[in-house]
Design a protein around this nucleic acid. Structure first.
Length: 602
RNA sequence: GGUUCGGUAGCUCAGUUGGAUAGAGCAACAGCCUUCUAAGCUGUGGGUCCCGGGUUCGAAUCCCGGCCGAAUCACCA
């Protein structure tokens, strides 16, 4: 049983004995004692003050006394206490802390919840195949894969899925521009990564398209009309129609260009360290979606306008009317998402479906949820849109078409380069290091810095990235935590406990056995399972970042103040070695949930 | 305009179901490597928690009203 549960029970017994109060869990507020006071855990006694009809300080004093009285609480876990106003600061007995540490050491899966035998599908990444991945996608991928790992640690079976947006008007734009301006360029001929090559033509399309709009407007046309009437746009739309009709040439071109993009994406995913269990392609799911829309039309759920387009009227649900099929019969984003959802539930016994998609699409998912529900799918109402915030640049949002993006490949490469550069400046550069190992460390550290930088901010909030300022390697960063880990590994290479963990605590239970920093570390370690749980419930990798940072910081402080290997007292030395090893274990586990690798040296 | 989300130190961000004098990092300044890795440790300065009301023993946190910012309301995805 964890410390909190034990304390809660004892508090219950205490207030029952003192005041006849049957306290519920909500009234028992335990928090970490602030450093300026003595103690480890603090009980807020205000909730009992009214019922006890006494002054807060007196109530705190009385509860404190009861908590140390074995006649009331059974075996007390607190050895002393002090009362400050309405706060009861309690000190836990060292023997209890040592038992906790031993229990942690004995559990290789420490922090993980038991299997709950339920399946969660997590959709993330979901790229368009008309451009390379940028920083916005990086946030999506890192959040998605981290959340998948976190939910696994919380006992879910997780299927990671990716719905590749491989068809649609945006792809046609790249294809068209390539046909018109490409001169047969291929990844081989140009040496460009496939996704980058295609992205260049997407940008090119937009450039030429704007030119045409400007010309038409100069000729006296309104902007809206010009956008519609521009020949390039008409050609792209015609191409999409041909694609849906299965035109051989268009399909072949499409397949070829997509294959270039996939090769490029695979490299990026690999470098980023993300993967999927099942990939869906919209080119395979949109027909299913169309079928469902047709069915809805027949059942009178949707309606057709004079021009042939199909709509859902959601005004009764407080939303607008939503297009489901264009007048030319081609499908839209929503159509495909309906089909994809249906197929997924056919393929897997999904208990919970989570879409990791930016908050700019909140409306879309509200509509999707409603539409699925109207179509009679029981999972419509259940879907979870994990809506995360945008990555903004100092001058606003990233726009692929306008070329104001931070490219994912470039960014990762730069981070690794920076990590390499920084390591060269270090005083303690590892003397016997090979070039290969140095590169491997730089990769872990560079990517660790990037991932932590992104994951440490609350996923729901927009975040700012300034390309002018390089991402830090000092302070509250991934490398800080990696460094702490590497230090511990270095110590452990030089010394191991000379007795088994279960024996370490024996006979060292005198009050001075544990110093403040050791207690703080053990206490922090005992928080870990609750932290993993919280990260899962809140879908927040940031919770784990904060935890890992606090743990690493406390370890560094301990490391600075106390010697481990040179400690003369064998018992204490063993205890510190064990404590260090457990800190390293938990740091590694937490960072693994974030997708951050730990170097054994750095 | 409707809806949703946000506003905390110069900058980037934490801040549990309301709890003690609001915290980190970066940047600035001052210290600490003959001792287990200085990507570290210690200290100093830095705040109208957007504004105004309300709820109560207690509000950055909850409620109401403003102000500011973002997203969205497409035959884009």
């Amino acid at each position: 049983m964890g410390l909190e549960e034990i304390l809660k029970q004892q508090v219950k017994a205490a207030v029952k004995a003192l005041y006849g109060i049957d306290a519920d869990d909500k009234q028992i507020q335990l928090q970490k004692t602030r450093p300026e006071f003595e103690g480890n855990i603090t009980l807020v006694v205000f909730p009992f003050v009214k019922l006890a009809r006494k002054a807060p300080a007196q109530v705190a004093e009385e509860i404190g006394k009861a908590m140390t009285d074995s006649a009331i609480v059974g075996e007390p876990v607190i050895e002393k206490f002090n009362a400050v106003q309405g706060f009861l600061n309690m000190s836990i007995a060292p023997s209890f802390w040592i038992e906790q540490l031993e229990a942690i050491a004995a559990n290789p899966q420490y922090g993980e919840q038991p299997d709950r035998n339920q399946l969660m599908m997590v959709e993330y990444s979901s790229p368009n195949t008309n451009k390379p991945l940028h920083l916005g996608h990086v946030r999506n991928n890192l959040l998605g894969s981290s959340i998948a790992r976190i939910q696994e640690a919380n006992g879910w079976k997780v299927v990671k899925t990716n719905i590749v947006n491989d068809r649609g008007i945006h792809i046609c734009k790249s294809m068209l521009a390539w046909l018109k301006f490409g001169n047969g360029e291929t990844p081989e001929s140009s040496g460009k990564k496939g996704d980058h090559l295609i992205g260049d033509y997407y940008v090119r399309f937009d450039k030429e398209y704007r030119k045409q709009i400007a010309e038409l407007m100069a000729g006296g046309m309104s902007e809206d009309d010009a956008k519609r009437e521009a020949p390039l746009m008409k050609e792209a739309q015609a191409m999409l129609l041909k694609w849906e009709q299965g035109d051989k040439e268009v399909r072949e071109l499409w397949a070829k260009m997509n294959s270039w993009v996939y090769a490029g994406f695979d490299e990026t995913y690999k470098m980023m360290g993300v993967s999927f269990d099942k990939i869906y392609y919209e080119s395979n799911t949109y027909l299913e979606g169309k079928k469902e829309v047709e069915r809805g039309l027949q059942e009178g759920l949707f309606y057709r306008r004079e021009d042939g387009s199909v709509w859902a009227d959601l005004t009764g649900d407080g939303l607008d009317e939503k297009l489901l099929l264009r007048s030319d019969g081609t499908s839209v984003y929503m159509t495909q998402d309906i089909g994809t959802a249906k197929l997924r539930y056919q393929d897997y016994p999904i208990d919970k479906m989570v879409y990791v998609v930016g908050n700019e699409q909140e409306y879309h998912f509200k509509v999707l949820s409603l539409l699925l529900d109207k179509l009679g799918f029981p999972f419509g109402k259940e879907l979870v849109h994990f809506s995360y915030g945008m990555v903004e640049l100092p001058n606003g949002k990233m726009k692929s078409r306008e070329g104001t993006v931070v490219d994912a490949d470039d960014l990762m490469e730069q981070m690794i380069k920076d990590a390499k550069e920084i390591s060269k400046d270090k005083v303690n550069t590892l003397p016997d290091i090979t070039e290969a190992e140095a590169n491997e460390i730089a990769r872990k550290v560079g990517l660790g810095a990037l991932k932590y930088f992104i994951l440490k901010v609350d996923p729901r909030k927009n975040m700012l990235f300034n390309p002018e300022e390089s991402i830090d390697f000092n302070g509250n960063t991934g490398p800080f935590i990696q460094y702490t880990y590497a230090r511990i590994q270095s110590v452990l290479r030089k010394g191991r406990p000379t007795s088994s963990p279960s024996l370490i605590g024996r006979g060292v239970n005198s009050p001075d056995t544990l110093n403040d920093k050791e207690v703080a570390l053990i206490q922090r370690l005992t928080d870990y399972p609750a932290t993993v749980k919280q990260a899962g419930e809140e879908f927040s990798p940031a919770v784990l970042c904060n935890y890992a940072y606090a743990l690493a910081q406390e370890f560094n402080s301990f490391y600075h103040d106390y010697s481990i290997l040179n400690e003369a007292d064998e018992q204490k030395k063993n205890l510190r070695l064990l404590l260090s090893a457990e800190v390293a274990k938990v740091l590694k586990h937490a960072m693994a949930l974030l997708g951050i690798e730990m170097p054994a040296r750095m």
